[in-house]
Design a protein around this nucleic acid. Sequence first.
RNA 1: GGCCUCAUCGUCUAAUGGUUAGGACAGCGGCUUCUCAAGCCGUCAAUAGGGGUUCGAUUCCCCUUGGGGCUACCA
Length: 492
Amino acid sequence: MIEKKSMRTRIAPSPTGYMHIGTLRTVLYDYFLARQSQGQFIVRIEDTDQERLVPGTLESLLKTFQTLQLDYDEGPVLMDDGSLSQKGKFGPYIQSERLKIYQPYAVELVERGHAYHCFCSEERLTKMREDQVAAKQAPKYDRTCLELSSEEIKQKLASGESHVIRMKIPEGESSFIDPIRGTITIQNSEVDDQILLKSDGFPTYHLAVVIDDHLMEITHVLRGEEWISSTPKEIILHRMLGWDMPTYAHVPLILNPDKTKLSKRKGDVSVESYLKKGYLPEALINFLSLLGWNPTADREIYTRSELVELFILSKVHSAGAVLNVEKLNWTNAHYLKTMEEGTYLEWCRPWIQTLSHDRSALDQAALLVRDRLQILSELPALTQFLFEDKLNHESALLLWKTQNKQEAAERLTAARHFIVGLSDDLFQSVEKMDSAIRAWIVQRGWGNGEVLWPLRVALSGQKQSPGPFELLVAYGKDRALARIDEALTHLV
RNA sequence: GGCCUCAUCGUCUAAUGGUUAGGACAGCGGCUUCUCAAGCCGUCAAUAGGGGUUCGAUUCCCCUUGGGGCUACCA
């Protein structure tokens, strides 16, 4: 890829209340590209649609960048005290604060004959479109207002009639080279006379991005595949203004299991909802990076710096990718299992802190279920029994295979006697506990199952749980005995 | 409908003219085993179809089929 100056790549989310998972994937690729080329990664906020604006959402968007530790070089920043600041010398980076920048360009385009005033009402436009569709034509503005004389225009303008400014799409064709997809060509006759300036004075997306990308010296634009068909508008705009174009690369869509564009109705679309469910930022980043791209395909786990180093834009797939939650879960579980123990515990604590005030007990619980944990939100359900005062044992569950109550009670009572006599150091080591109890079982001439099953269920009350040795160590002697006594009352 | 775009196991992908088409998730089976996990081992499973080009096509070209996107005073 040819680079002009240093690479400046940007992401431009609209603040709609959350970060789309596809936006994050694009952010990631921007981030990799910028970091591997010593370029800059810019965050710009596109909030030119006043109607869709949701107050307060810019903050949560920026917060997500922070949570994911995706540092950008320029753009709006959320300060520690919650206030908003902006960094970078091309600001402001929020389009609604740049309104006065766009209008002169629109006027200039009109003066130079590249754009024109349009006074058509929404009602007329809607009807026109309906008629066109009914006649099996492509809906396009019919250029009625292009016929207006300059006198008429002056008059309408003077009387304050509501109007917009439209691009006058020239004849010919527009093509560009997409590093992911190759050359894409679209006939200009397919392109509608795009509105550049809305009647409320706000620019539309197309005008705003072209001006901002130029002014901010953006060299690479990564965006979703859904933008391909509107790229010609931006190409033409660049030509009209005499500006160099950035490189446009369109990344594939992230899909629902039914292969349609990922939608809220069919699953989680927001990064925040994944975070809230207990997916780790690094796992999410690792997984998402590999959706549509893979450095070697012989590994699934890459560190962030490896991804930065290995990323190659032209090797990004062009086909959409279904988000496979199972694999995300596996990835998350892998991170949970392999991270430093201390880090693991720090991730776990907030999820179970309401279960107990005893931090070491919480940590022990978290460690106990580590191999069973896929996402952190499962943690409370998995560990709750450990903190329960009473377990409310089901007597049927205490019986191993064909065992009857009496037999289970005998084994459990015997185990209780044995455990009473156990020295304290056995309660410090699962391994020692394991071998001591197993040796005792052998000595009694019993099978493991007939003793260990009732013992485990006595301690956990659960059909599925960690093993009895782990639980004995986790509880300590006194609590373990109390649990056993409790279970015994259900076996009479 | 029009335009654009895409096409390797169920899913994510590797292999860009020569491989027994590889890996991962999921599935299935086994080992282990007090349960569930974890772990280890094994197994099932794909080049959408048809034409070319070529000594040779997953790979290059064309057609068909199928999927997706766009088609706003939304981004």
